[in-house]
Amino acid sequence: MKVIIGGCGRVGSMLALRFEAEGYDVAVIDRDPAVLLPLSKQLKGRTIRGLIFDRDALDQAGIAECDVFVAVTSGDNSNVVAATLAKNIFGVPQVMARIYDPRRAEIYRRLGIPTVSSVTWAVNEILSLLMHPTLTRDATLGNGEVSLVRLAVDADMAGMTVAGLGRAGRIRPVAVVRDGRAFLPQAEELIAAGDLVELAVSTEGLGELRDLTKA
């Protein structure tokens, strides 16, 4: 499988190394040779100097037989242009553009360009960490409709049953980690201080879970 990464900032260079570790054939394009140089010492794949929508740079990177194209430069417009041409002109099966502006990210998604809105994601993440220190989001499923949330049980919550945490259709306790060992609990299992409870939570359920942990 061949992947082209447009933009060699922190996200681009980490993606490149991770893809390569997964066995992908990686090529990275950036207009700044100074950011390509350090990566080229760690990466087996090619680093190419150029604009990420430049024909020569894309040809050199092997766009014609590329399976995945990711655009993560600091310029929203460059990312959109590159992702659009990868998808519509070169027919790359999987493309992704990182877009800072959330409103534009939504529009491009509608136009068929998959986007990651890193600003929205970071804001949600920071808010949820700062406002709810006992809750940690372990994973988000789909477009974030359901999250796996880890709840650190404190003395106030100890003694509740696992079923007592659940809310039909919104919060479902999945697993408990006690003394470093995870198990699937029965409904009547009592939770203890220090337990980590893993819960599947819908967006509507997040608010309820917060209220529950504050009480």
């Binding site: 929508f53 430049d54 024909r55 020569d56 310029g75 417009n77 460059s78 959109v80 242009v81 659009t84 529009i107 509608r110 136009l111």
Partner: peptide, 30 residues
Amino acid sequence: DDEDNLVVCLLAKNEYAVGLTLARVNNPKN
């Protein structure tokens, strides 16, 4: 900026159904 001009046209045509779009090409390579 060529990428800006492309995005203007992309939005004008697809999002706002503008009848005619003209775009300035700055770098002939693009």
